[in-house]
Amino acid sequence: MLIEFVLDGRSKVNTYVQLVQQVKQALRVGLLAPGDQLPKVREVAQSLAINPNTVLKAYRELEIEGLAEGRPGVGTFITASLHREALVNQAELRAELVDWVRRAQAVGLTAEEVTALVATTMRATFPASVTKESA
C-alpha cells in the first residue's frame, strides 16, 4: 500500500472530504504519481472502520476531478499529477513569506492576527471553493 489514510477525529470536515484531501496532499508533495494505485476500498473501510460507501464516494470525487480512474475489478489508479512546476518555486515563496511574517511581528501583530489576515486575504483572492476546501 502506497499511502495510508488517517482521519482527524475532531475535524468537522466530512470523512469523504478528508480522504479526498489526503490524496490531493499526497499528489502535491509527490508521494503519489500517475499510475499509482490507491488503497483498496475494503482495506480503507476495514482499517479506519468506516462505511465502504464513504471510500467509494471519495474515489468517485477524485474521478470527477480527473485525478483518478477506476478500473473495474482491479482498483482505482492515479491519472494526474498536482505536483506542479509552481511548487518548484516554493522555497523562494517561502523565504518571502518568512520575511513578511517577520515584518508583521515587527509591527506588533500576534500569531492569531497574522493567521486571520492570511485567511481573509485567501478568501478575497482565491475562488470560494478553493478556500472552503482547504479550511
Binding site: V41, Q46, L48, A49, N51, P52, V55
Partner: peptide, 9 residues
C-alpha cells in the same frame, strides 16, 4: 467495526 466494515466492502 473494522471486521464489519471490511466484510461489507
Amino acid at each position: 467495526m473494522q471486521s464489519l466494515m471490511g466484510s461489507v466492502a
